[in-house]
Design a protein around this nucleic acid. Structure first.
Length: 846
RNA sequence: GCGGACGUGGCGAAACUGGUAGACGCAGCAGACUUAAAAUCUGCUUCUCUUUCAUGGGAGUGCGGGUUCAAGCCCCGCCGUCCGCACCA
């Protein structure tokens, strides 16, 4: 019997699917629609195992839905703009476009080699004008709708690379590439009004029942809704009132100071006449702007010498500080400090010897002084005049009501979510379709002039934005007045590109971004699959973009992804050798290491290497397995099977040689079964020995695998298919056997499609297995006639016996009491109590 | 600090609504086939006790308690690991 020839099968069936256009999605199909989508890859150059796992999962869903009679949209594309292409350009002198397109070609070939059921006719790349030109049109639509605005904003500026850095790219106050000390600069940038949708984006989460709870919580925290009081402090002897925000208006009588953020306009104004304050503000900025080295950071303040008027007690004055822990971009950039009930305020008050007055006390603790820990629990108000005796929540409401009545404040909601700054001073992105004119201001590029195409002739030999220094590209006449004007040279954040690609997959006309009627047939995406790393930004931006388009009447859906699944990473053990103290260890790639179950030896010298933790595959630790080599050696099906086996899909999966070997063995076993079943010509008539146990197992497997796939529990589906395979191998050849093999192939087809097609053909079945309808379990076979009843005595298992399903309680009880072991254990005494769970167990309490 | 998830054999993991813990895979051990090896197949594989080696007894799902006829699953209190956010007023 021949081995399964995976290379032959892959060539043959991929060609067959291609020529039959099996996976093309038809907009006008009368079938129910299913949109299955995996997060599209960045074309870095090569597919990695994480992609294979992600797409293998999506493929199982897509193929299963298809077999179940759905018209399936399962597309693929490329998130093709971004920094790595520019880095490659700077390092290797290649053009970002050429580099990116070559990577796409290579990765497309890799994906095709895996035999995914994708509709390649809908492939898109965000770096092509056909895509980003339509994005520019959408940008102008949102601009016209007032959802985009321009604002001066502080950015992290790398003076060497002459570029803006994201917060994550600033490490210890220095640029991650150049190492230069990062400056804060103010630049005029474009913002999307995501905060207009904060409330909707928050409440919309509740409708996303098929999203992981974890992701919904992360988004909820990110949006960060806080309700409280915004009120005005008058500054004693100065005409500069300012607002503060608090979630604890109930603690207002416990206030002992007020504080401004170092960037607060009043602090800035005061600094102009105070060198000391100027120095203090500079000191505050020196600390890490973004990275969380704030942890142990000391609370520091600068006493302005001014004081503010307590709004509830105009006779009282509170000292006004500038403090390092007050953030300009949250709330109003100013706070009142209530040390007794806020830990930061307490630390600050202790340092500057400010008073600490308890105003909330739990039962019987009214006079307990606050020590080192601020009290944030429930209780009643004390030391608070007219509020005394109230609970916290009513007290909050009472203070807000009074502030509103007296006109010095109002109840309000503050969001952590900020508007989305989308300007990037980069070349390899979507040009922002705006022309700046001295007379007319920022003028949108006329629709007829779209797309604004990136110039090809750019250089990367000097730092900075190549678009800005291109000799001619930016010089254009103003569309409004015709005078010389300048193009915007900033490009859009690449998160914009990925905020609507799933819409363009559904409908991609040449003359507009999408056809709403066609989009309505496909959206929302039924099942979206990707890594948790996109749990917040990408998913929030895509949700926002969808809502924004719905808001301006272009879409009907408000939530783009009905179902979301975040899959775990592919990990691998690491191999290293210590190089002595002070030196980083030396890492070795898996292909350079001979791994047995007990030892790991370096092939080069035969000496042992240390086997380290199983961690995410990464270049720096060299624990990367390249899918190409594995596919050609073991075949696409074995790789796909392994990616779905063993670990639950949301958890990490450890790659191992033994694991892929096991997957390969499974493929061979199924192939042997298919071949032997093909040889035996048994049919029901000539096979007197129909195997009822096998038939029942087949039914149970159909039922179980279908539910497992539905719930994305691929590891369980895999286990069931192993079980069925084991049983079929043991069964005698004949009609039941042959039919079991056929069903096995159908159930395994979404996971190992080439093998399934090859087996299907070997069995002489007509057509392609991918076109065969999904098997349905015979309900009669799902119910076992006999059940095993467990017998417990005092909750401990003592015996078990077979009984008819649905047998009467009394019969079960009698059978149990008659068991030899039970008689022996009870020593003739009757049980004190008998619990019978029908069809399951009997528990005798002695 | 805040929020969340998880903790089950040598390993990855199953276990439905509280009802026979360890399905399935990996690794391992023993055997069959073979001149031999590979491949394949068969069996065993949570720990432990015993003058009865069994169709036997005991223990066992991070730790300590509790509820229940019955707890991996529910409740209370710890410990540990991982993830997200992080001076958010």
């Amino acid at each position: 019997m021949a081995r399964f020839d995976h290379q032959g099968a892959e060539r043959r069936w991929q060609a067959a699917w291609d020529s039959a256009q099996s996976f093309k999605a038809h907009d006008d199909s009368p079938k129910p629609k299913a949109y299955v989508l995996e997060m599209f890859p960045y074309p870095s150059g090569r597919i990695h195992m994480g992609h294979v796992r992600n797409y293998a999962m999506g493929d199982v869903i897509a193929r299963t839905r298809r077999a179940q009679g759905f018209e399936v949209l399962h597309p693929m594309g490329w998130d093709a703009f971004g920094m790595p292409a520019e880095n490659a350009a700077m390092e290797r002198g290649v053009h970002p476009g050429g580099w990116t397109r070559a990577n796409i070609a290579a990765m497309r070939a890799q994906l095709k080699a895996l035999g995914f059921a994708l509709d390649w006719s809908r492939e898109l790349a965000t770096c092509e004008p056909e895509y980003y030109g339509q994005e520019q049109a959408l940008f102008l639509d949102l601009l016209a709708a007032g959802l985009i605005y321009r604002k001066d904003s502080a950015v992290n500026w790398d003076p060497v690379d002459m570029t803006v850095l994201a917060n994550e790219q600033v490490i210890d106050g220095r640029g991650w590439r150049s190492g230069a000390v990062v400056e804060r600069r103010r630049l005029s940038q474009w913002f999307l009004k995501i905060t207009d949708f904060a409330d909707e984006l928050l409440s919309g989460l509740e409708t996303l029942e098929k999203w992981p709870e974890k992701v919904r919580l992360m988004q909820e925290n990110w949006i960060g809704k806080s309700q409280g009081l915004r009120f005005t402090f008058a500054v004693d002897g100065a005409d500069t009132p300012f607002d503060v925000f608090t979630t604890r208006p109930d603690t207002l009588y416990g206030a002992s100071f007020a504080a401004l953020a170092p960037d607060h306009p009043i602090a800035q104004a005061l600094a102009e006449t105070s060198p000391g304050l100027t120095a203090f503000i500079a000191e505050c900025r020196a600390g890490g702007t973004a990275t969380a080295d704030i942890e142990g950071a000391e609370k520091k303040g600068w006493d302005t010498g001014l004081s503010v008027v307590h709004p509830l007690d105009p006779a009282r004055r509170l000292p006004l500080f500038v403090a390092n822990f007050v953030l300009m971009d949250y709330g109003t950039g100013a706070i009142f400090g209530c040390p007794a009930h806020d830990q930061r305020d307490l630390d600050f008050a202790r340092k500057y010897a400010l008073s600490v007055t308890r105003v909330v006390a739990p039962e019987g603790a009214a006079d307990d002084p606050v020590q080192d820990e601020a009290y944030t629990g429930p209780g009643r108000l004390v030391n608070s005049h007219w509020l005394n005796g109230m609970e916290v929540e009513p007290a909050k409401a009472a203070v807000i009501a009074r502030a509103e009545a007296e006109g010095w404040g109002e109840g309000t909601t503050v969001w952590r979510l900020r508007d989305w700054g989308v300007s990037r001073q980069r070349y390899w992105g979507t040009p922002i379709p705006i022309i700046h004119c001295d007379g007319c201001g920022a003028v949108p590029v006329p629709r007829a002039a779209l797309p604004v195409v990136l110039p090809e002739d750019v250089t990367f030999d000097v730092p900075g934005n190549p678009l800005a220094r291109h000799p001619s590209w930016k010089h254009v006449p103003c569309p409004a007045c015709g005078k010389p004007a300048m193009r915007e040279t900033d490009t859009l954040d690449t998160f914009v590109d990925s905020s609507w690609y799933f819409i363009r997959f559904a409908s991609a006309p040449a003359d507009r971004p999408f056809d709403p009627a066609v989009v309505a047939k496909w959206l929302p995406v039924g099942q979206y699959i990707g890594g948790v790393e996109h749990a917040i930004l990408h998913l929030l931006y895509a949700r926002f973009w969808t809502r924004a388009l719905a808001h301006i009447g272009q879409l009907q859906v408000t939530e783009p992804f009905a179902g979301l699944f975040t899959q775990g990473m592919v990990t691998h053990e690491t191999y290293s050798r210590d190089r002595g103290e002070g030196q980083a260890p030396l890492w070795y790639a898996p292909e350079d290491v001979e791994r047995s179950s007990t030892a790991a030896l370096l092939k080069a010298d035969g000496q042992p290497v240390e086997v380290g933790r199983v961690i995410k595959m990464s270049k720096s630790k060299k624990n990367v397995i390249d899918p190409d080599a594995i596919i050609s050696r073991y075949g696409a099906d074995a790789v796909r099977w392994f990616m779905l086996s063993d670990s639950p899909p949301e958890r990490d999966l450890a790659w191992s040689e033994a694991g892929i070997d096991g997957a390969w063995r499974f493929v061979q076993r199924v192939w042997r079964l298919a071949e032997s079943a093909a040889e035996s010509t048994g049919d029901a008539a000539s096979d007197p020995a129909l195997d009822p146990a096998l038939a029942r197992l087949v039914a149970r497997t159909i039922d179980g695998v279908t539910t497992d796939i539905d719930r994305l529990q691929f590891n369980k589906a895999v286990a069931r298919l192993y079980e069925l395979t084991n049983a079929v191998e043991r069964a005698t050849p004949g009609a039941s056997h042959r039919s079991a093999v056929k069903t096995l192939l159908q159930l395994a087809a979404p996971m190992v499609p080439h093998l399934a097609e090859q087996g299907w053909a070997a069995l002489g079945e007509a057509g392609l297995i991918c076109d065969a309808p999904w098997p349905v379990a015979d309900p009669a076979l799902l119910v076992e006639a006999q059940v095993t009843i467990a017998v417990q005595i005092n909750g401990k298992l003592r015996d078990s016996f077979e009984a008819d399903r649905g047998a009467d309680r009394a019969i079960i009880e009698a059978l149990a009491l008659g068991r030899e072991k039970v008689v022996r254990a009870l020593e003739g005494k009757p049980p004190r109590k008998v619990i019978v769970v029908p069809d399951r167990l009997v528990n005798l309490v002695a």
